[in-house]
Amino acid sequence: MTSSNRMSRRDFIKVTIGAIGGVMGVLLGVPVVGYLLQPAFRKQAAEAWIPIGKLEAFTIGIPSPFSFTRTKVNGWERTATSYGGFVLRRSEDPKEILILSSRCTHLSCRVNWNEAAQGYLCPCHDAKFSIEGEVLSGPPPEPLERYNEFKVDEDGNLLIFFEEA
């Protein structure tokens, strides 16, 4: 009788030890998982209207380059990333504007407008894009990215809507 009681007490103790270990494991384990995996869940959403210059400064019919810088906060460090593109005014109408990113869709090199070739040339793998940004030759899989949302404010500044992926 006593011996069987003793055994059950022992088993109880063993279960308790296991439970204590489990409780501590969970109490520490769950926060640790959050601590380590947090970068996967926290997305830095960055979007803003960015002025890229006076509308009148862009000549009609010829792509003109622009660039801007955005600062990202990574942990406790601030890093500035620069972006660039081309503005093509098709007419006097401030709605008739094509704004392209200068980032090549192949491997992210910067394309340049070449007046003689009448196209955007990528220096890395000799890709060529049309004035509309369509791929004419070379490896890029897609046309150049467009900034589709833009506006002109009262002072005549051209602003684009920038969204960080």
Binding site: P31, V32, G34, Y35, Q38, G75, W76
Partner: peptide, 20 residues
């Protein structure tokens, strides 16, 4: 340059950093 800021980051921005 970074020790203090990295601890501030752990305490205020990292999930459960304050607990650890």
């Amino acid at each position: 340059d970074h020790a203090y800021d990295s601890i501030q980051y752990i305490m205020n921005d990292v999930a459960f950093g304050w607990l650890i």
